[in-house]
């Protein structure tokens, strides 16, 4: 039983034999098989008749003269260089744009840059970070005594939540009427989520009632004495963004904008000229 490949090879040989395109040796082999194998002979006959059919279809004549006029040639000569040049310029601009975005991404994102490191370097850098973290954890108790404890990191991912009672100044999460149902400020749970952030162990494990938090800090209804130092990360970008932002764009950003404009304009013109 022949597989698909063998059948294709056989068909190819028969077809070439039909056109007299086989070597003497191959030709003898095919002829010998044709004499022995009726199925192969039948396949050959079918091929031969198909080829013969093509000779039955009449040749078609040109329905008109295709002689060129000077206009046909001159119009084309003017049009061709413009679209060709535009196509080149757009392609180069698109490539440059991708390269610039890639470079910017790698420079701005250390993780991405690190992922491009060879495996050994990456392992080394991970080890170094782990050592740093261990060192920080060792120093933490001493530093904790000296510094006020940050309770909330504004803008840090996954924080917030909770919410006080009906009148509490809540932040994040839906405030509920029942105090006990609010997200607990459990120190042990928080330390599981943020292992490097040490929280004071003497924090209340439950939120205070409405009367206790009245007049307190606007942050999750916690008393100012317990609030510690508030680290705000959201303020800095707000200060940066201002009317001078556009002028402060780096030359790389300007180049990217320029390239993007060229790519979009070029693509549009090419698209329109193609449809026209």
């Amino acid at each position: 039983m022949m597989n698909k490949r063998q059948r294709a090879k056989q068909l190819e040989q028969l077809s070439a034999y039909l056109d007299g395109q086989l070597s003497e040796n191959e030709k003898r082999q095919v002829e010998s098989r044709l004499a022995r194998e009726p199925e192969l002979r039948e396949q050959y006959e079918s091929l031969r008749k198909t080829k013969l059919l093509f000779s039955r279809i009449p040749r078609v004549h040109a329905p008109r003269s295709f002689a060129l006029t000077p206009e046909m040639v001159t119009v084309r000569q003017k049009k061709q260089p413009f679209t060709t040049t535009l196509r080149w310029v757009t392609s180069v601009a698109a490539i440059l744009l991708v390269v610039m975005f890639g470079a910017e991404f790698l420079l701005a994102n250390p993780f991405a840059a690190r992922s491009a490191m060879p495996a050994e370097e990456m392992l080394e850098s991970v080890n170094m970070e782990m050592e740093d973290e261990t060192a920080l954890a060792d120093e933490a108790p001493a530093a904790k005594a000296a510094e006020p404890e940050p309770l909330i990191l504004w803008g840090a991912p996954g924080q917030g939540g909770g919410g006080g009672g009906a009148e509490a100044f809540g932040m994040g999460g839906a405030g509920g009427d029942v105090v006990e149902e609010s997200a607990p400020l459990d120190a042990t749970r928080d330390s599981e989520i943020y292992p490097t952030q040490s929280l004071p162990t003497d924090l209340p494990t439950q939120l205070q009632t409405d009367s206790e938090i009245e007049g307190g800090s606007p942050i999750l209804g916690i008393n100012p004495e317990q609030a510690g130092e508030i680290i705000s990360t959201s303020e800095e970008p707000m200060e940066e963004s201002g009317p001078g932002e556009l002028t402060a764009l780096s030359p790389l950003r300007w180049a990217e904008i320029g390239m993007a404009v060229i790519v979009i304009a070029g693509a549009l013109v090419l698209l329109i000229s193609r449809k026209a």
Partner: peptide, 25 residues
């Protein structure tokens, strides 16, 4: 070429009635 011929041959079976007797495959 071999594959093209084979495919046309299969396709022409659908036009059996049109094929002259000697070309019926």
């Amino acid at each position: 070429l071999a594959r093209a011929r084979s495919r046309v041959q299969e396709c022409l079976q659908d036009f059996w009635e049109l094929l002259p007797d000697i070309f019926r495959l």
